[in-house]
């Protein structure tokens, strides 16, 4: 099954290892800021990390590996991300919580003009009132960044999660 908005930068490293290292440092900074934005529940700010035509897809690993396209979250374009942000901040009912998103093992895989293919691991720990902190989701990003006016933005963030059986629900994006 195809998802037409999937972006694939060309395989193979067209960049030197020094350029990939430099890209990795830049992406690490990006990911730290991204995690901080979500940790403070700034869903509007989260949408601003993406290009207008970006794909944001949170997909269970078993579905992904079976070629099943269903997303836990599936946003084609920033407009859909803004609608999710609005709902989270204004209309959705959910218990208060603390969020703790860690992004590690960042790698820039290839550079193709303005596009950088990258990957990272992520871990979301949630803490609810009167409950112990718990692992809510662990997964891997399959990213494509685009340099727009000198700034990196996500053109694709596919979040492939290992924690297939979700604790209750995933409220905020990862």
């Amino acid at each position: 099954m195809s998802i037409a908005t999937t972006v694939t930068a060309k395989p193979g490293n067209t960049a030197s290892s020094a350029a990939l290292r430099e890209a990795r440092l830049e992406i690490e900074e990006f990911n730290y800021a991204y995690a901080e934005t979500l940790d403070r529940f700034d869903a509007d700010g989260w949408a601003e990390y993406f290009t207008d035509d970006a794909l944001y897809h949170v997909v269970a690993r078993d579905n992904y590996e079976s070629g099943l396209p269903l997303g836990l979250i599936y946003c084609e374009g920033k407009a859909m991300m803004k609608d999710r942000a609005y709902a989270l901040l204004n209309t959705e009912m959910y218990a208060p919580r603390y969020l703790h998103l860690s992004i590690t093992n960042t790698r820039a895989l290839s550079i193709d003009g303005p596009l950088i293919r990258a990957t990272a691991n992520y871990t979301l720990i949630e803490t609810l009132v009167d409950e112990a902190s718990r692992l809510q989701q662990v997964g891997k990003y399959d990213d494509v960044f685009e340099r727009v006016d000198g700034r990196l933005l996500l053109k694709q963030r596919r979040c492939i999660y290992d924690s297939v059986t979700i604790n209750n629900c995933l409220v905020f994006p990862v």
Binding site: L70, M80, Y94, A95
Partner: peptide
């Protein structure tokens, strides 16, 4: 796929029902 954002364990209704 777009419409399914409304349901599921991260859907606009799913979050609310599961939490309730």
């Amino acid at each position: 796929l777009r419409q399914n954002n409304i349901f599921g364990p991260s859907g606009f209704l799913g979050i609310e029902d599961n939490e309730a």
